[in-house]
Design a protein around this nucleic acid. Structure first.
Lengths: 135, 135
DNA sequence: TAGGTAGATGCGACAACTTTGCAAGTGGCT
DNA sequence: AGCCACTTGCAAAGTTGTCGCATCTACCTA
């Protein structure tokens, strides 16, 4: 679908297409990982081009970033954000749970604080089952 | 209570006391803000000393960090972590809600995924009431 | 109370990650 | 085919946090 880029007023460059494809394929990935994947087909791409394209793609709503750990952002395809992330503070593993798991929590906060929460933006932090066992 | 430091095997230095005091006074603050406050009484303190003391104080359980925004950590007094943070992605405001608000959510995740979540570590991201109005 | 020592501090260098300026390149319109 | 604004590559710089090392000092011991 090359027109999904043009329709949003963006030029269709190989770099841009490959960045979007990488985000979709990787599920969630940081800029460095995305650059690596893009380089398989377009070895010369510069990291700053990746950063700029991620920002651009996010501005037009094709891509979304979230924060899974202490460090930088990870990027997702916008239409793939239907889950929340369970990040283990011990081993760093990233689990997923359907977004409905938080539905009541979100509603409570909306009712009590008029705050519309986006549960996918930040990870849910805690300790995973395996790490709990080994304590 | 100077002995709360010594009791945990830490030397009682003016810098360390002031860092702890600043964390307690500020409620939540990043290392730079903490350094600024410490400098009011101890102008010479080095930023790396602040970082090292925050790490040390966290190791002995007097201080805890959490992530409120895209950037770095913010620090709290450990006995002050009884609320979760509602961070508005538009205006950056930080609201609070009692930790019980998330109790059922936490239980659901524990039951379904054996994942023990720490809701205070990452902020709850979304849009605050005021920003929702002005959309 | 003086002295020794492990731990703490200050300082500068370094590292990781991201942003920016600018010149050269190129997609898309006419 | 040609033009122009948008993109890219590259290098430099900004940010934030970490590290090595020499110096200093809190605390223990005699």
């Amino acid at each position: 679908m090359p027109d999904e880029l043009r329709d949003r007023g963006l030029r269709l460059t190989p770099q841009r297409e490959l960045v979007l494809a990488a985000v979709r394929e990787l599920g969630h990935a940081n800029p460095e990982e995305i650059a690596e994947m893009v380089r398989l087909k377009h070895p010369g791409i510069n990291l700053s081009t990746v950063y700029r394209n991620l920002e651009t793609l996010e501005n037009v709503g094709l891509v979304i970033h979230s924060h899974l750990g202490h460090g930088g952002a990870t990027y997702h395809a916008a239409d793939d954000i239907n889950h929340l992330h369970l990040v283990c503070g011990k081993c760093g593993s990233v689990g997923e749970a359907p977004i409905e798991t938080a539905a009541q929590f979100v509603n409570t906060i909306a009712d009590d604080y008029s705050f519309k929460t986006d549960v996918t933006h930040f990870a849910i932090h805690g300790t995973c089952a395996r790490c709990l066992e080994t304590l």
